[in-house]
């Protein structure tokens, strides 16, 4: 039963990723693209956790943690770039 739930939820997340992709392509501003990318990071973490539940393994947990950290760092770096026009001041 859990595997059916996992498949259903991954469909929902795939649909959310499509919506994010639409926002990523349409914009209209650079910041809209950044926030779309940030949401895509979160959805990707959810997909990895789901894969771990589906395959009944905790191996993928470190991958999810890495994506969470890289997502935060890259989002704040690009925000900093837009604020200052430079990352290394």
């Amino acid at each position: 039963m859990l595997s059916y739930a996992a498949i259903f939820v991954s469909t929902l997340i795939g649909f959310s990723l499509l919506l994010n992709l639409w926002r990523f392509i349409k914009g209209p501003h650079m910041l809209d693209r950044i926030i779309a990318l940030d949401t895509m990071y979160i959805n990707a973490i959810a997909l990895i956790i789901l894969l771990g539940i589906f395959l009944e393994t905790t191996l993928y947990y470190e991958g999810a943690l890495l994506i969470a950290m890289l997502g935060f760092v890259s989002t704040s770096a690009v925000c900093k770039f837009i604020l200052r026009g430079d990352i290394i001041e």
Partner: peptide, 18 residues
Amino acid sequence: SIFLIIGGVFLLVGSVGL
């Protein structure tokens, strides 16, 4: 399963809002 479905629905709501 219930928690998974709640989570999936909220993720979808966030993306629909975006």
